[in-house]
């Protein structure tokens, strides 16, 4: 029953490939509901800011709180559905916290002069963050990030009114990404 070193090496490669693929699918599965939720938040946030620009900051503040609480609720719901834990759920929440901290920190240091700068920056950062995650976690994240970042730049340079573009494209892309991850 003993193996040659070539056979052992081939078996280890199979082990690594199966582990990598399984880990990737699991990550997609865990991040899917968070992406859908944040997609909805983006639609409400950008759409609401477009309709009521004076209240944009307050609207986003409320939505960020809702998103943070929603992330915790989704983690618990995941647990309730019979999964032992949701180890990536809190990381997804933490990722959003880091992105938001970076965005608002940058706004404090370098205040945006135009509405479309205010709009495009978080979307661009989010797209880049997706691409970076995808380097470790799978091609679907890279593709989603590229789509979000590219559409952000298209919107910045060519589309008016910008808020509704980001509501539809940013939020829509996130929801579609979440649904796409569900099928993985």
């Amino acid at each position: 029953m003993s193996l040659s070193s070539q056979e052992a090496s081939a078996s280890l490669q199979q082990v690594e490939e199966a582990s990598r693929r399984s880990s990737q699918l699991y990550f997609y599965h865990c991040s899917s509901p968070h992406l859908i939720m944040w997609g909805i938040i983006w639609i409400i946030g950008y759409g609401g800011t477009g309709l009521f620009p004076r209240y944009g900051w307050w609207l986003w503040l409320g939505l960020i709180v809702i998103g943070s609480v929603g992330g915790i609720v989704l983690g618990h719901r995941y647990k309730r559905d019979g999964y032992a834990s949701s180890p990536y759920a809190w990381r997804m929440g933490a990722l959003w916290a880091i992105i938001l901290f970076f965005v608002f920190g940058t706004y404090a240091i370098l205040p945006p002069h135009l509405d479309k700068q205010f709009c495009a920056f978080p979307a661009l950062i989010t797209g880049c963050a997706y691409m970076a995650i995808g380097l470790w976690r799978g091609l679907r994240y890279v593709i989603s990030g590229m789509v979000v970042a590219t559409l952000t730049l298209v919107g910045y340079y060519f589309i008016e009114p910008i808020f509704f573009w980001f509501a539809a494209v940013g939020g829509g892309a996130m929801i579609l990404t979440g649904l796409w991850f569900r099928t993985a």
Binding site: E16, E17, S22, S23, L25, Y83, A84, A184
Partner: peptide, 20 residues
């Protein structure tokens, strides 16, 4: 190998296991 990277007690659905 597919089950190993999951956190302890975590399960993989049959359809996903089949794909892996």
């Amino acid at each position: 190998a597919a089950l190993k990277p999951l956190p302890a007690g975590e399960a993989l659905e049959f359809v996903r296991l089949k794909a892996v």
